[in-house]
Write a protein that binds this DNA or RNA. Sequence first.
RNA 1: GUGGGCGUAGCUCAAUUGGUUAGAGCGCUAGGCUGUGGCCCUGGAGGCUGCGGGUUCAAGUCCCGUCGCUCACCCCA
Length: 425
Amino acid sequence: MKFKSVRGTRDVFSPEIELWQYLENTAVALLKAYGFSEIRTPIFEESALFNRSIGEDTDIVEKEMYSFQDKKGRNLTLRPEGTAGVIRAAIEQNLLVQSNIAKLYYLGPMFRYERPQAGRYRQFYQIGAECVGSDNYRRDLEIILWCVDYFAAIGLTGLKVCLNSVGCADCRPAYREVLKKYLQDQTGKLCGDCQRRAVKNPLRVLDCKVDSCREIIFGIPAMQDWLCDACKTNLSEIEADLKKEKVNFIIDKYLVRGLDYYTRTVFEIKSENLGAQDTIAAGGRYDKLVQELGGPPMPAVGFALGLERVSEVRQKQKAVATPGNRIDIFFALLGEQAQNRAAGVIRELRQQRIKVEAVFENKSLKSQMRLADQSGAKFTAILGEEELKKDSVTLRNMQTKEQKDIKLDELSQFLKTAKSEEYNG
RNA sequence: GUGGGCGUAGCUCAAUUGGUUAGAGCGCUAGGCUGUGGCCCUGGAGGCUGCGGGUUCAAGUCCCGUCGCUCACCCCA
């Protein structure tokens, strides 16, 4: 085969695409219920936007971005995540009005140049939302509860909500220094990566999975002890309300996110049904980003979920697939005249959004019936010489095998009635 | 970027210590049934064994390279 989808990308089609449509539709409906409205931003942006928001010495910026120059020499990057673009757009379009809050959601592909793995792609789809303009902990809660409600709505179980605070501009620098000093004393015992992190980005050491490092991490002073009062209150209020809402969560004091813009609340939702890449949704608060990107000093909180991973979990948990795109009526046509007579009727039915398929390829009735069967159609209309004389079709119910003559003119009415009966049980 | 496993028909997999024309099931297709689907029976199509090179009288099988898939590390959705 000459052409293949490029490494780390994939095609999504039936029956999985019907699942995706269901996941997206459910998410959109719930996002609207939570007061978010959609924003569509470009798939590429100025590279500098991502450098500044995500952070120069994060893995994403250092080695994972699809960056290129266009014909005018502009430095552009395919978006590796959604927040930066949404905030840029919100500022540019004046959606951020002082003392008001803006609630925006987005969905679409993101791009990161990473080694593909289970649940990790170079082009992957995210659904995410941002709430800009409030530092009220209830907004953090809204975001987390949306995720919880969504995963419940689509029937996922075995999820774990992990919560932590990474502090704010007031308390994080102090903690950073404490951490740096502590790590300096232990530097010989750290793994190579962590020795570098200890200097550049000491918080990331907390995330290390190397056994020798974990031992050292165990003795590290906890961020919690260094949080300022405001951050402490923020975290404890969220905790209290999550308990009140009976959300199952744990405080993971080693939870740090790979993007620099987070402040205070960070969270991840993990599934026990996936491999190493088990985070299906993640997010947190980012109170300084809006101003840093040239907007008004407005606090914000948001999240993103990975559609491939959600789809994966859902498929592992539900044996029964989401209903596919079954057609309503299948036309088996015998001969040129039958094809001519049916063509108009078929178009009319389709205009009424009745799902129709037909065979115009002069196949035997037997093979047309086989196609009808495979299509999953509820009815098959057979139109041949006999029916043409009466201007009717032989309508076969594919489940009950019941057949009756129906005038071609009455088909549309019949199908509508049949459909509404189905809805009423 | 690092490491492990794997590349044979559309799919899942066979093929003796290297040995004739690379097989099976499922799927697809035609017929049995000249106008009726699923079950059954019979036939048919479909393969540069990922690609390139090497060893050999002989390579799907062994060796090297390469590309891809996959899992894990790193990191993340």
